[in-house]
Nucleic acid binder design. Structure first.
Length: 206
DNA sequence: ACACGGATATTCT
DNA sequence: GAATATCCGTGTA
């Protein structure tokens, strides 16, 4: 197995865009669940004022960011659990936050995990983790694809258009307005998308 | 002990 | 739509 993989094959912002459409799956105790990635954010490491590793900040909880490309980084905020994948070489603490998925596998299981209607199932980073049924950090330091969490880089739906914007919840430093959030234009599972932006016919896929 | 955050739910005009 | 209320793990003290 090579030490190089998708997660160090390009700059982190480029990787975040390329992840849109990929199939994310989790072999949960209740069965296989997952869906298509429709929204991501890139965090560019020590120089990025919004990143957990800004200025080299390194603690027990953000340590997975310093792991090799593809390391799972689950962290909690406001009592929720969020999913990141570390990018670039070890000790280069960049990463990508998975912000929303369009559910395609095990939807019944996910609606049981998170009893909300429609897009409310997975249209946010904490929501999608609750839907998958992940509420702990035990998968930290695993390499994505080597455990129960997987992102299939070869199984990718093609977005008609990729849209970018500033990152959500980021309000400090000069990186606040950098367009490092990416989403599938017109997809209903994108967080905060307006109803009249949704393309009900194709959900924004080719 | 305590303040706060890469969020979400609820409660209003 | 916008303004709270609440979530609880984490970092610093």
């Amino acid at each position: 197995m090579s030490i190089h993989n998708f997660y160090d094959s390009d700059t982190t912002d480029q990787l975040a865009q390329q992840m849109l459409g990929m199939l994310l799956t989790y072999e949960s105790p209740n069965g296989l669940v997952g869906g298509r990635i429709v929204e991501t954010e890139a965090y560019m490491g020590e120089q990025d004022s919004a990143a957990h590793a800004f200025q080299g900040k390194r603690t027990a909880s953000n340590e997975p960011l310093y792991g090799p490309a593809g390391t799972v980084y689950i962290y909690s905020i406001h009592g929720k659990y969020l999913l990141d994948v570390a990018t670039q070489s070890p000790d280069e603490p960049q990463g990508i936050l998975i912000r929303a998925i369009e559910p395609t596998i095990g939807q019944e299981i996910m609606y049981r995990n998170r009893p909300r209607s429609g897009v409310e199932l997975t249209n946010g980073p904490g929501k999608l983790m609750a839907a998958l049924g992940i509420a702990e950090k035990t998968m930290n330091f695993e390499i994505i694809g080597e455990g129960k969490l997987n992102i299939d880089v070869h199984d990718r739906w093609q977005p008609r258009r990729v849209q970018e914007s500033g990152r959500i919840g980021v309000s400090i430093g000069e990186w606040t307005d950098r367009p490092l959030r990416y989403y599938v234009s017109h997809n209903p599972y994108v967080s905060g998308i307006k109803r009249n932006e949704v393309n009900i016919a194709n959900f924004g896929w080719i």
